[in-house]
């Protein structure tokens, strides 16, 4: 099901943990959708000096988090903001199609951590976006009959309000 790179990152995830007094924290996901990822960053001279994460989720979610943390470390904030879902899938040598939406949230969590840092710099509280349909991408959400997707539908509706 998973590529060798995914399994390797799943077995030996890099950068697991929290950063005390992190410069930015970003969280995405919802347990009903399957995965929750929290990223912690330490920034020095506009560069990601350290990146750590905690993840609740499937093998793909853990491997994605680990890969994103590795890709982001040492990059400038602008470079890190440009890490896309597609880049992560490519670096992992592919993910099963059904995991593309649900589990590939690592770069979103990283971007939120960076936005959190930038908001703090400007003396503002970073307003965490609600985990609406744009994040809680349940692939079955489009099905007309709500009973087909009982939980995803309610979660996505509730959070988009």
């Amino acid at each position: 099901m998973y590529s060798e790179i995914v399994m390797e990152h799943f077995k030996n995830p890099r950068n697991v943990g929290e950063i005390e007094n992190a410069d930015g924290i970003g969280e995405v996901g919802n347990p009903a959708c399957g995965d929750i990822m929290t990223f912690y960053i330490k920034v020095k001279n506009n560069v990601l000096e350290d990146v750590k994460f905690k993840t609740f989720g499937c093998g793909a979610a853990i491997a994605v988090s680990s890969m994103v943390s590795e890709m982001a470390k040492g990059k400038t904030l602008d470079e890190a903001m440009r890490i896309s879902h597609r880049d992560v899938i490519t670096a992992l040598d592919g993910l099963p199609k059904k995991k593309h939406h649900c589990s590939n949230l690592g770069s979103d969590a990283l971007h939120r951590a960076i936005e959190d840092y930038q908001a703090k710099l400007q003396g503002k509280m970073y307003e965490k976006p609600g985990d609406g349909p744009e994040v809680c991408e349940c692939p079955v959400r489009d099905i007309e009959d709500p009973e087909e997707a009982p939980y995803c539908a309610t979660v996505c509706e509730r959070s988009s309000k």
């Binding site: 995965d35 499937c58 649900c102 009982p150 939980y151 995803c152």
Partner: peptide, 21 residues
């Protein structure tokens, strides 16, 4: 778990029994 099922949905049996997602 939802992550296992092909539909990416948590077991309808457990939801019907009131187990939270």
């Amino acid at each position: 778990s939802a992550c296992i099922s092909r539909s990416l949905k948590v077991s309808h049996v457990m939801l019907a029994m009131g187990v939270d997602a």
